[in-house]
Design a protein around this nucleic acid. Structure first.
Length: 454
RNA sequence: GUGGGCGUAGCUCAAUGGUAGAGCACCGGCCUGUGGCGCCGGACGUUGCGGGUUCGAUCCCCGUCGCCCACCCCA
């Protein structure tokens, strides 16, 4: 038995899910699924592995580097070339599916998808290399009603899970472009400028100015940008008005940019959804994925540095596969981010840590095990979760085992019970014990369970 | 990728330049059909891995791997 000790931990950034973990995950997934379905979203699943060219070039430079690539197999492995990759998110595979199966899908396709994705990122708190995303996406419409319903659906999920303090940060890719342009930041420096501006709450206005000029932004443009982004806690309407003044140069009679109209409409429409009051226009929100074309979102809670989820409109992605432009918008919730915060805030129902079974059957002679299994069947047909103790240990040890795993009742099949066709039911918490006919045992156990659970 | 911290029994952690202990958990007994409490006893480690200094390293030094925190980024 003794050999070299192998590292028994999972690979870096990966996790084993023990029973208590799986129960918690299933609890959250159940809520997410139920809410998404209630908004008319249909289920979809796609393969873990995609052809590598499906994924490359969709996420921006950083995303490209974080894709897990799969080497060619067999004699081609030595070439070091990769032809497959693990999916990096659920959005690009969705776009591929829609491009492939367009004719079979409804014109206004709404789907949800809860599956793992893989990123070769550095693990941290709430960040793993394999993690689950809970995506909802709606294709085929450019209406702001889509954005509003998506915000409503994720808000309802979070509210039902017990979150009361989340905010949805809202911005728009076109607005971002217009602001940078109006500030005089050249197109090529937009990415650099956004990284700097994003640090505003950490390093302050002076720090951002320094960072901007260090990245090549002219001092005048840097000052102009700060004027926009340092707006503080302005209310959504006022913020949009000042942004409008900035991007139009304050000139009267200039047409209101479509992106601002779009944001105003989204804000108005969400007032009739569970997302009411949750949205905050945030001109500094950028988001890393390059496929976004319109509104972008990110969900924030105070006690988590990262986000609980994010999303946005990507009207060009399906067209990258099929050539046919199909407008689309989606939102993604990060399952493990939700679990981390729920764990810290004790938002899980206590019953989730419950025992593996309602009752454990005890016997004391090897020849009685067959009768124990028959009795278990009777109890299972009575709706109970039944665990048959497989060994013939002393009663004390068996009771201790049941007690230790939190199994609330023990059904004792000793010599006298077997002879009489009865079973003794003991409730461990109270110590109460009744001997009843096997046919009545399930009901007795249910009664005992009822007392324990109040 | 940058900076800092930590790797000792199944778990949580002590300790010392002279080859390691406690609590919990586990097993057995007190108690041969009744658990939790108590008492008694038992088993348990190549001190992450490799190398160096040393008469001798778990401790000091170097490397390596793994984990944690901060920055960065995101779900």
């Amino acid at each position: 038995m003794s050999g070299p000790k192998l590292n028994t931990g999972p690979a870096r950034g990966m996790r084993d899910f023990l029973p208590v973990d799986v129960r918690r995950r299933a609890f959250v997934i159940d809520v997410v699924t139920r809410v998404y379905q209630s908004y008319g979203f249909e289920p979809l699943e796609t393969p873990a592995v995609e052809n590598i060219e499906t994924l490359l070039g969709k996420y921006g430079e950083e995303g490209n580097q974080l894709i897990y690539k799969i080497l060619k197999r067999g004699e081609h492995e030595s070439t070091g070339q990769a032809d497959l990759a693990l999916r990096y998110d659920l959005t690009v595979p969705l776009a591929r599916v829609v491009a492939e199966h367009r004719a079979k899908l409804p014109r206004l396709f709404r789907r949800y998808q809860i599956q793992p994705v893989w990123r070769a990122d550095r693990p941290a708190r709430g960040r793993y290399r394999e993690f689950y995303q809970c995506d909802v996406d709606a294709l085929g419409s450019t209406s702001a009603a889509i954005e509003a319903e998506l915000c409503g659906a994720v808000s309802q999920v979070l509210t039902e899970l017990g979150f009361e303090d989340f905010r949805i940060r809202l911005n728009h890719r076109e607005l971002l472009r217009a602001v940078l342009q109006a500030a005089g930041v050249p197109e090529g420096l937009h990415g650099e400028a956004l990284i700097a501006v994003d640090k505003l709450d950490k390093i302050g206005p002076e720090g951002v100015t320094g960072e901007l000029t260090a990245r090549g932004v002219a001092p005048q443009a840097a000052r102009a940008l700060l004027g926009v982004f340092a707006g503080g806690e302005a209310e959504n309407g006022a913020l949009l008005s000042s942004l409008e003044a900035f991007v139009t140069g304050g000139a009267a009679g200039v047409a209101v940019p479509a992106c601002l109209e779009n944001l105003r409409e989204i804000l108005a429409l969400t007032e009739g959804t569970p997302a009411a009051g949750r949205l905050r226009v945030d001109p500094s929100l950028a988001r890393g994925l390059s496929y976004y074309t319109g509104a972008i979102f990110e969900i924030a809670v105070p006690d988590l540095a990262g986000s609980l989820g994010g999303g946005g409109r990507y009207d060009g992605l399906v067209g990258m596969f099929s050539g046919e432009q199909v407008p689309a918008c989606g939102f993604s919730l990060g399952l493990e981010r939700i679990l981390v915060v729920m764990g810290e805030r004790n938002l899980f129902p206590p019953a989730l840590t419950a025992a593996p079974a309602d009752v454990m059957i005890s016997v004391f002679r090897p020849e009685d095990l067959g009768r124990a299994m028959q009795s278990a069947l009777v109890l299972r047909q009575g709706g109970l979760r039944v665990f048959v103790y497989p060994d013939v240990d002393k009663m004390g040890k068996q009771l201790k085992y049941a007690s230790g795993c939190g199994i609330p009742c023990v059904a004792i099949l000793g010599e006298s019970e077997l002879a009489a066709g009865t079973v003794s039911i003991k409730a461990l918490a109270s110590g109460r014990q009744d001997t009843v006919a096997l046919a009545d045992a399930a009901r007795t156990i249910q009664d005992f369970l009822g007392e324990v659970r109040g």
